[in-house]
Design a protein around this nucleic acid. Structure first.
Length: 243
DNA sequence: TAGGCCATCTGGTCCT
DNA sequence: AGGACCAGATGGCCTA
């Protein structure tokens, strides 16, 4: 395939350059090609031209292969992102597009951040602002504390239970009305999506145990505020994508 | 058939 | 100098 593209472009005379250094070969090839078209190629250039063509082709193949590998790696990373998204996976379910995957991931992170903030607030209420032993659970910030919804090895915090209490969900919907608008682009799926994963997954931060995580060692990163306006904007953005 | 999505090629730029 | 990254162009495939 590469050879076909290369050949076509050479015939079009459009092969200009690859980079400031690599293009010398290609430009030499082009000029020789043009002169060849202008008048008959001298036979003494024949061997040199063939070598150059091979060099150019090899270089082009090499560059194309690198780019192909780079894109494949990028797609693998995209697949990895799809796997941890709260969506149905399976052969019968159409794969999320790249743009949908990225937007969904963003919304998902925002949603988890909001849930975490709400949990922190509730924990603070329960313990009256005292610094409880499981301080780590109240530290979550979306950026550095990765949440892995697809990881089944998550342990549930002994004090918080396996899932958010119903009051929490209700509080979320009342205090963060925009949160309910954070929806995965179901329209992009061709089959009925599965419900989002429960938020019961906890971190492995246990009461009374020293925590080695970087979150507990360093100040938390700047927090991205989630406003209803922002959520609204998110929804509108998704609408554009989900059209 | 139009539009969306994707893979690939390609040339330019930046970085190491 | 070579590789990584990026964006534009192009063509194929699929779906409504």
């Amino acid at each position: 395939m590469d050879g076909i593209y290369l050949r076509d472009h050479l015939q079009d005379g459009r092969l200009n350059s690859v980079s400031s250094t690599q293009n010398e070969l290609l430009q030499k090839m082009t000029s020789e090609h043009l002169s060849r078209n202008g008048d008959k190629t001298p036979s003494k250039y024949k061997l040199k031209k063939q070598v150059t063509e091979q060099e150019v082709q090899q270089l082009r193949l090499k560059i194309n292969g690198r780019e192909r590998k780079r894109m494949h790696d990028l797609n693998l990373a995209m697949d990895g992102l799809r796997e941890v998204m709260p969506y149905a996976h399976g052969p019968s379910v159409r794969k999320l597009s790249k743009i949908a995957t990225l937007l969904l991931a963003r919304n998902y992170i925002l949603m988890l951040t909001s849930s975490l903030d709400e949990m922190k607030r509730l924990v603070g209420e329960i313990y009256g602002g005292h610094h409880s032993a499981f301080h780590c659970s109240a530290v979550g910030h979306s950026g550095s504390h990765a949440v892995h919804p697809g990881n089944a090895s998550h342990q549930v915090h002994p004090l918080l239970g396996s899932a958010l209490p119903s009051s929490t969900a209700a509080t979320l919907s009342t205090t963060l009305p925009g949160l309910t608008s954070i929806r995965a682009p179901h329209a992009l799926l061709k089959t009925a999506p599965t419900p989002p994963l429960p938020l019961g997954g906890g971190f492995q931060h246990w009461a009374g145990l020293p925590c080695p995580c970087t979150i507990c060692q360093v100040p938390p990163p700047p927090h991205i505020p989630i406003t209803s306006a922002g959520l609204t904007r998110l929804s509108s953005e998704n609408k554009d994508v989900m059209k």
